[in-house]
């Protein structure tokens, strides 16, 4: 295990040990929610942080896979595990189609197209009542689980979520360090130069899109099994905005950022639901506050703080040898 992964291992272990410290299902379930949200935020971070593609319709992936698994395992008559696999496969198919459409544009065009795509699927979930149940959604979604792995118990379900989160962290950490990850950041910063030196910018972006969609689909699966209920609200603009808030608040482009952001947003949302009713207002105010006060997010914010502290220490003596000019 590398030194960089150590803090993640400690945090994940702490999350997995929550049931040991408290018998209360409330905290166990809250931790599951954080883990599920963090997987989705990690997925969106591939697009926002590393590809420079600001998607405002990310909730469409969790939404599609949650609806698929819910429909397949209740009305479709599949058992939960094969319904889950089919749901992920189906979501990837639709994501491929949506990717071809959305990646016709970048920048603000991409923002608008992803938002419109998500709204169209939301509209289908909301209005196509004969299939999706409309506003009532689909309830009584069965969780998988056998004698060996009783997933209906909150602590076992939490371990599934934390285990999946660990997988996501390892896979994405390796991806970001890989040549592909570096090329992806290249297309974010200098698409024309990357194209000029022979990279297929579109294909790299499409791969990133599909990777994000895959983790989004996993989130949706866990979400449907956790709540055992799906409704159109999980694809509303506010839902996409919440995931984006997790990424931006934590720090886009970092590995720890989405995790911290997810914890913050889930805790804030739960606290808000206890004391005040106006979650949407709070969400809006948080957006405005983040943009005005902490535009880079928490993790880079800490980096800046550390740099500022380091500057207080005496700097090493300057080298006497004249340095080479950097610009030639």
């Amino acid at each position: 295990m590398t030194r960089r992964m150590l803090p993640f291992a400690v945090v994940l272990a702490a999350m997995a040990l929550v049931p040991v410290f408290t018998p209360s299902h409330f905290y166990v379930n809250l931790t599951s929610q954080v883990a599920i949200a963090a997987i989705g935020a990690l997925g969106l971070n591939v697009l926002v942080g590393h590809a420079g593609l600001n998607s405002l319709g990310f909730a469409v992936f969790p939404g599609l896979s949650a609806y698929l698994v819910a429909w397949l395992s209740t009305l479709g008559g599949f058992d939960p595990v094969s319904a889950g696999l089919l749901a992920i496969g189906g979501t990837m198919l639709v994501a491929g189609l949506f990717g071809v459409v959305a990646l016709r544009a970048t920048g603000l065009g991409f923002v608008m197209i992803t938002m419109a795509l998500c709204q169209i699927v939301w509209g289908a979930a909301y209005r196509w009542t004969s299939v999706t149940g409309g506003d009532n959604g689909i309830s009584a979604v069965p969780r998988p689980g056998t004698g060996l792995l009783p997933l209906e118990r909150p602590e076992v379900f939490l371990w599934l979520c934390v285990g999946t989160l660990a997988l996501a962290l390892i896979q994405l950490g390796r991806f970001f360090d890989s040549p592909m990850g570096v090329a992806l950041r290249g297309t974010r910063d200098q698409p024309r130069r990357m194209s000029a030196v022979g990279y297929d910018v579109w294909r790299i972006r499409f791969s990133a899109w599909m990777l994000a969609a895959a983790w989004g689909a996993v989130t949706g699966l866990l979400y449907a099994w956790y709540h055992q209920f799906v409704s159109p609200h999980m694809m509303a603009v506010t839902a996409s905005a919440e995931v984006l808030l997790m990424v931006v608040a934590g720090g886009a482009g970092t590995l720890a950022g989405p995790l911290i952001g997810a914890a913050l947003v889930v805790l804030l949302k739960n606290l808000a639901s206890i004391w005040i009713e106006r979650w949407v207002m709070l969400l809006g105010c948080t957006f405005v506050a983040i943009v005005l006060l902490m535009p880079d997010g928490i993790v880079p914010g800490f980096g800046l703080l550390r740099a500022a502290l380091a500057r207080l220490r005496p700097a090493p003596a300057p080298k006497l040898v004249p340095r080479e000019r950097a610009d030639v």
Binding site: V111, V237, L244, G284, T286, F287, V288, I290, V291
Partner: peptide, 11 residues
């Protein structure tokens, strides 16, 4: 800009 206008929309 996207975050700000979206935040204002929610507010």
């Amino acid at each position: 800009q996207v975050l700000l206008t979206l935040g204002l929309a929610f507010i």
